[in-house]
Write a protein that binds this DNA or RNA. Structure first.
Length: 590
RNA sequence: GGGGGCGUAGAACAGCCUGGAGUGUUCGUCGGCCUGUCAAGCCGAAGGUCGCGGGUUCAAAUCCCGUCGCUCCCGCCA
């Protein structure tokens, strides 16, 4: 049926008869001569047809699926198209066969128009024909292929773990699947293969990986869907650096495959404390400076109330220099409002004047020495705008870090800035003052003594990998001692009875000679997204869902028969029943 | 659960602030012309519940309220 892919035809085929098959990207009918751009998975080639010999050309429209047999020839002098890979040749059509006609399209199959996403998802199969989306699919495939190859070469075993597992209420909300054989009971879809991969370590696998589909029933974001794919990896007799080394090797290989560049190794490492202190984020974007500075050192005796209160209550004053820019009142107000959204009580701004003095609503409350020290600490040059926050350390850096990201983040995606954030806190304080895990409850503390004596400031053996300010994934050295695991549950306030009921099977496994082990998982969707220059993982997921969890093409999720529900022992609430009997939304065109 | 943006012909937009006849542009569709285009060109035509509902007004795409959908963010996401 087909002798060549479009871009497999070159100078060497001139004079030969070929058959290509694909879709009509464009038809340009000049009356006495007609051009067809035929697109297949490899690219595009131009077919030239004589309408007198092939009257059917007049009936061809965009996206008809056709095959064309003809002779390859050099394009006439002056008609080459340097934009096309096949721009120096063309096929003189001898036979054109319509394999399948196409209706008028709901939107154009090209990368120039930005069609409403609902329409794109409604006709995703057409959307995926666009070069950008086709390239994203290919990139994703190349990424997973090179990841598998890299890990295979290092002796990793790819093992599949179940996707119908037991529900554990910690962490994200589980996606639940009702059991028919045991009405009233539920499976959960895995949020990650965490415990199963640890069991594989106990099983003696030593080096495991899986490209694993994971599910979390939480609200959507540009980088979050209900289901996503991660590279999951674990190794026995491993410490942190073994994990970082293995993960770096696959990330570097993926970047090489998709971008053709060598990322220098090892990636820079920042401790969590340093990342927060300098960038106000545990996933800092280090492609630009604008670092947070401590400006409190020369404000000991300040009379300015806002600073004074913060410093006397154990807080601090931090600042960033956001560089020279227009500074109308409206902008100052907008940033102050944004700072409040991020948790600050307010925002102090200062503009460095041409003579080096500082213009600010609060300048009159600060001494000349204090103003100079603030300016010097932030390297203020004439024209620069300085932003200051006074509060608890974490509030200060979080607020300024949030502003920093929004003000400084570069638009392009050519630079790749990988880094490790290490030494995360073991626990976080919840709103009610109780402790909760910051990574997951199977993460090993750096020091048992520290965990016992001062759990609130204990450091964990957990680490994240960050690319351009996006958290790709995280991992940790795991607890392999059942006694330590029990202590952690205790500190987390999970009493032993509950721990036994939920994790007893796992705690039991730990008692049978568990090797020290460590691992990691990173999101393949997010990695491919960044490498492809996309800002949403939906662009690298073939069939994603909208923000309300709907697939506009299939209509999922849908109601099911009452019989099905009865088999599962499920009764709908009156609220759900009311939704079911509501008339279809009038705005829905389908 | 909360905040912001958007919704106008099959597609992408302008019009909305400051109310006055469904007005305009590009692509697509249909008809016609056209022998070197490559986002072909030229002529013509069809195509509209301005998301939906309510309100204000002599008059609403435009102002107000509600609602639905899409989207970005906060919460949430071990």
């Amino acid at each position: 049926m087909r002798s060549h892919h479009a871009t497999a035809i070159g100078q060497a085929e001139i004079g030969r008869q070929v058959t290509v098959a694909g879709w009509i990207q464009r038809r340009r009918d000049h009356g006495g001569i007609a051009f067809l751009d035929i697109r297949d998975a490899s690219g595009i080639i131009q077919v030239v047809a004589d309408p007198a010999a092939h009257p059917e050309v007049g009936d061809l429209r965009m996206e008809f699926c056709v095959s064309v047999t003809g002779t390859v020839r050099r394009r006439p002098e002056g008609t080459e198209n340097p934009e096309m890979a096949t721009g120096t040749i063309e096929i003189g059509a001898e036979e054109i066969t319509v394999l399948s006609a196409a209706e008028a399209l709901p939107f154009m199959i090209d990368d120039r128009t930005d069609t409403d996403e609902r329409a794109r998802l409604r006709y995703r199969y057409l959307d995926l024909r666009r070069p950008r989306m086709a390239a994203n699919l290919k990139a994703r495939s190349r990424a997973t292929a090179v990841i598998r190859r890299t890990l295979d070469e290092q002796g990793f075993l790819e093992v599949e773990t179940p996707t119908l597992i037991n529900s554990t209420p910690e962490g994200a909300r589980d996606m639940l699947v009702p059991s028919r054989l045991r009405p009233g009971e539920f499976y959960a879809l895995p949020q990650s293969p965490q415990l199963f991969k640890q069991l594989l370590m106990i099983s003696g696998v030593e080096r495991y990986f899986q490209i694993a589909r994971c599910y979390r029933d939480e609200d959507f974001r540009a980088d979050r869907q209900l289901e996503f794919t991660q590279l999951d990896l674990e190794g026995s007799f491993w410490g942190r650096d073994d994990v970082l080394d293995a993960i770096e090797s696959v990330l570097v290989a993926a970047v090489g495959a998709l971008r053709g560049v060598d990322v220098p190794r090892p990636f820079p490492r920042l401790t969590w404390t340093e990342a927060m202190d300098r960038y106000g984020s545990d996933k800092p974007d280090t492609r630009f400076g604008m670092e947070i500075r401590d400006v409190s050192t020369h404000l000991d005796g300040t009379e300015f109330g806002v600073f004074k209160v913060a410093l006397e209550s154990g807080g601090t004053v931090r600042g960033i220099n956001i560089g020279a820019q227009e500074w109308p009142r409206s902008r100052a107000d907008a940033l102050t409002e944004r700072a409040r959204e991020l948790g600050a009580k307010g925002l102090v701004w200062m503009v460095v004047e041409a003579d080096g003095s500082l213009r600010s609503p609060v300048a009159k409350f600060l001494s000349p020495d204090e103003l100079i020290s603030v300016k010097d600490t932030l390297d203020g040059e004439p024209g620069d705008v300085l932003l200051l926050a006074a509060d608890k350390w974490k509030t200060c850096v979080t607020v300024l870090g949030g502003l920093r990201t929004e003000l400084g983040r570069p638009g392009g995606h050519d630079d790749l800035s990988f880094l490790w954030v290490i030494d995360f806190p073991l626990f976080e304080e919840a709103e009610d003052g109780s402790l909760t895990f910051s990574h997951h409850p199977f993460t090993s503390p750096v020091s048992l003594e520290e965990m016992r004596d001062d759990p609130r400031s204990a450091t964990s053996n957990a680490y994240d990998v960050v690319l351009n300010g996006i958290e790709l994934g995280s991992g940790s050295v795991r607890i392999h001692d059942p006694a330590v695991q029990r202590q952690v549950f205790e500190i987390l306030g999970i009493d032993s009875e509950i721990a036994e009921r939920r994790f007893g099977w796992f705690l039991e496994a730990l008692r049978y000679g568990t090797p020290p082990h460590a691992g990691f998982a990173f999101g393949i969707d997010r990695l491919v997204m960044v490498l492809q220059g996309e800002v949403s993982i939906r662009e690298v997921i073939p069939f994603p869902k909208t923000q309300t969890g709907v697939d506009p093409m299939t209509g999922a999720p849908t109601w099911v028969d009452d019989n099905q529900l009865a088999e599962l022992g499920i009764t709908m609430t009156t609220e759900a029943r009311a939704r079911q009997t509501e008339p279809e939304t009038p705005s829905d065109p389908d």
